[in-house]
């Protein structure tokens, strides 16, 4: 469904992506792991067109994403949970969740959008009284849940999760991981998740890819990751300070 072929991206002298090849099959959950600053978020942003690669092609259902005529319709297929939730400060929670449903090609009447927002908030474990609050009035965990509700509000085919558990306590991280897994299974969506958290990997992933040195170092089913012989994967999943991955970057 999503294919990245030889993707390159640099920022000045920093060659972040040096030929990323990756395929994500429809209805599967791909988790990308790798150290900080290895370009995991950039890889996802290239698919959405937030970052333009210098070289290579990205296709979704065989269509080159750089050739999409109707950008609104293309982006309507995607949902994304950002690392810091990226909620709009000036809007109440329900309008954040229903943002896409209040404007553009997926616009619905305001009452219907409000109802959907409340339902999605319930789905992520938040009560309707949260709906009229501003994002700044919520805890980090609640903001992540609102971000998750926003990502699934329009029931997209493809959902990206950028470090969904970063900054959360282990219990809240577990709650978010379970929610993501449940939602992915329920909706049958194709998902890509970026994380450093091996608990998240084991909960969320069908397949795992490790990004290192600007390339996909290893990819395979999550069940195979513990048996992977690649020393980079072995060091990463066991969190060892010693190994081929430099610890001072």
């Amino acid at each position: 469904m999503i294919t990245l072929d030889n993707i390159h991206k640099s920022f000045g002298d920093n060659h972040v992506l040096r030929g990323v090849d990756l395929h994500v099959a429809r209805g599967t959950s791909m988790v990308i792991i790798g150290g900080s600053g290895t370009g995991k978020s950039i890889a996802i942003k290239t698919i959405l067109g937030l970052v333009t690669p210098e070289k290579g092609t990205i296709t979704v259902d065989g269509q080159d994403v750089s050739q999409t005529g109707d950008r609104d319709a293309f982006l309507a297929r995607f949902g994304m949970l950002f690392q810091g939730a990226a909620l709009f400060d000036s809007l109440p929670v329900w309008q954040n969740v229903a943002f896409r449903l209040l404007r553009g090609s997926l616009a619905r009447p305001k009452e219907e959008a409000h109802e959907i927002a409340i339902e999605k908030l319930r789905r992520v474990g938040l009560t309707p009284d949260v709906a009229d609050r501003l994002p700044a009035e919520l805890s980090g965990g609640m903001q992540k849940r609102v971000g998750l509700a926003r990502a699934i509000a329009a029931e997209p085919e493809i959902i990206f999760f950028d470090e969904p558990t970063t900054g959360l306590d282990p219990i809240m991280a577990g709650v978010i991981n379970d929610l993501i897994r449940e939602i992915v299974t329920e909706m049958g969506a194709t998902t890509m998740t970026i994380t450093h958290d091996m608990t998240s990997v084991r909960t969320i992933a069908d397949n795992v890819a490790m990004l290192h040195g600007g390339k996909i170092r290893w990819t395979g089913p999550v069940a195979d990751i513990d048996g992977a012989t690649d020393p980079y994967v072995d060091q990463f999943i066991h969190g060892r300070a010693e190994g081929p991955i430099e610890t001072v970057r």
Binding site: G49, L50, R71, D72, L75, F82, A86, R100
Partner: peptide, 10 residues
Amino acid sequence: EQIDALVTLS
């Protein structure tokens, strides 16, 4: 990343 979020929300 709210600007990026706007883009992803069409």
